[in-house]
Design a protein around this nucleic acid. Structure first.
Lengths: 213, 213, 213, 213
DNA sequence: AATGAATGAGCGTTCATTCAT
DNA sequence: AATGAATGAACGCTCATTCAT
């Protein structure tokens, strides 16, 4: 006994090695331009072997996507701090997310562009996709912090917490996505993504209406 | 006399017919999956003729993109109202934009997904792309309204108007993009894009911090 | 009266202008790589007009070929000298031909490569081709000089003059063709086309067998 | 054991089968007019498989060219005879070459028309081309015989052997090439390639100048 | 005579996927 | 499990030629 375990472990390692290779190739050349040959070469395996571990090229992309999501979730969870208000924690999480968008820009972009409908259209196991959508969303993590913020009085309590979390998440995701996608347009107006994110947070904190006094 | 004009008009009509066909095919099958044969069939023209009017498949996509941008700009300009505050006008523009995102969802999606760097990588005349980026951005329209809002005291004046406009624009663009892209995820949480947009505007108006009394 | 003549002249001029353009394009880009658009542009005419003067792209090439042949024939005729022996005249014609192969290298190459069977396979009027083969061959000119050389005793008289002319002509044509075609191979052996031609003439003059005394 | 060898052998056979098919198609329709589909059909393989063995259509042509060169070299080497004079051996080689030009006329023609510059322009591995030009030239074989003829006194010794060999080779190559290329022209003069070659050799042996007595 | 818009057949190459070994 | 040979469908673009005006 122990042999099946070792086999299992080796299998997992090989799978990881393949995702490593795929990630490298996808991020270097782009998904469309990457070929299974590229990935097989990078992984130093035969092309056929890739198909022992993944049912399609898209499935490989999906594995890379999940990897990025895991990284992001870990980052967000790491900055959860029970000793501060929910609102302050949200701001810290926003910073962490911005950092993620810079330091793992390839994963961030992949994450951004992936429409859920794309996933379903792809040549992937549908159950896997739904499990992913359900369980892996950073929304879950965010929701808990929002709920705490409402409890501790640092956030408005007139908006349903799930909706509030979803809104904040979408805003942040969206503003960064736009900032990156339209980089050249904004550059023409002298604006970068950091400035956008900063103003965005300020607006969300204090609103757009002038305060008296 | 008049013959050259008629020729010119017919040429323009044909060009439009081709863009019609391309739009239909692209929006139905997606760009990658659309073939020039598909478009030629749809347009009831020979494939070669497409290349008399557009230099590449990408150039056709670009034509569709511009069409969508023109529609959006017209919509935004139509709701500019000198008799209300800048802030109120922005809210109306937001509604108009949300409506655009629903009624012209395909154009909206195309608009969203188009990274400016994609444009430059494509097989299109570079000058056309730059002209587009420079002149066609809805940001320009938005900027004017923001400026008015600052003047009339309906908007905060402690943020540079261009930056404020860009932030508002990105937020709206981003939140809708996320709402559509991640539709299925949000559906799992019982949230739709209208709710997101509404809460978003509320946050931007009044901020996330509880108000006393 | 006079008007039809002028028309005729203008037509001829236009035809020439087209051949000018075709020649330039063919010699610059090669036949296969040249397009009728290229030629029409160069000629500053519409593509359709080319087809008023030539029935096909190959027909245009044929016109260029004839032009080159005319040039060559003129050159050969110019060096015919009644005051020297036929043999000496042949040597002078050989020099003139070598010069032609250098100074009109494009025409020379075209001339070389054109297999008569190609001509017949092409999209050209068959009668034109046969007329060309019959009347335009430099062989005719050469034949006269050979005949004279036999008469004046400067050439062997034991070989039929037509056959002797054809042999000399083929040798010269062939050796230059090979010299140009296999230029790189010969370069590797340190040999150029001038040396080849010189040795060739020496062999033909005096034979390859050592002479005694 | 033995399995890798068998695999290797099968691979070689398949490669040969592809060249067989390509040869047949190229020689029937001509290179330009042949399509990879034609060849794949003829070989009863999928088009994709061709590209497993050859990187391009041109590469296939190159393989056919090499095949022809190998045939020719074998023929020439087979008639090398140490017991006769170099001059006599050259005459025998000339006959062998003429025979080759008839019996392997397609290979002969391919060989003729292939300009070395064409080879380099093509989509082929440059090193392969150079190796071919360097090692496969029949010139090498010819050179040895010429050298022997000079030694044994059957050939003139006042011309450098390499240059003499190259000249003889070019003459023969050229005269046959012209004979075939201009077949129809010569036919109009009642001359065929055998007669040309015969007179050619006579001239080269004894020169064109009348001998006294 | 001249135009130029329209045609449509044609093609080399790629590459995700399969499957016999 | 791993291989790698084989597949074959797919596709953007070209261009010689035609023909209505």
């Amino acid at each position: 006994m122990g042999i099946p375990e070792r086999k299992e472990r080796e299998k997992e390692q090989r799978r990881n090695a393949i995702v490593d290779a795929a990630e490298k190739i996808f991020f270097t050349k782009g998904f469309q331009e990457s070929t299974m040959d590229d990935i097989a070469n990078e992984a130093e395996l035969s092309k056929g072997t890739l198909y022992l571990y993944f049912k399609s090229k898209e499935d490989l992309l999906f594995a890379v996507l999940i990897r990025g999501t895991v990284i992001l979730n870990e980052i967000l969870e790491r900055v959860i701090d029970p000793d501060i208000t929910g609102r302050d924690n949200l701001l810290i999480m926003a910073d962490a997310f911005i950092k993620f968008s810079k330091e793992h820009n390839d994963h961030f972009n992949l994450f951004m562009r992936f429409q859920s409908k794309d996933l379903l259209a792809l040549n992937i196991n549908v159950d896997d996709v739904f499990a992913y959508l359900r369980d892996q969303s950073p929304l879950t993590i965010l929701g808990a912090v929002v709920m705490k913020g409402i409890s501790d009085g640092s956030l408005r309590n007139d908006i349903a917490p799930e909706l509030l979390a979803a809104t904040l998440w979408s805003q942040m995701l969206g503003i960064l996505m736009v900032a990156y996608n339209k980089k050249d347009v904004y550059a023409a107006f002298g604006i970068d993504h950091e400035a956008l994110a900063k103003v965005h947070l300020e607006l969300v904190l204090n609103g757009i209406i002038p305060t008296n006094g």
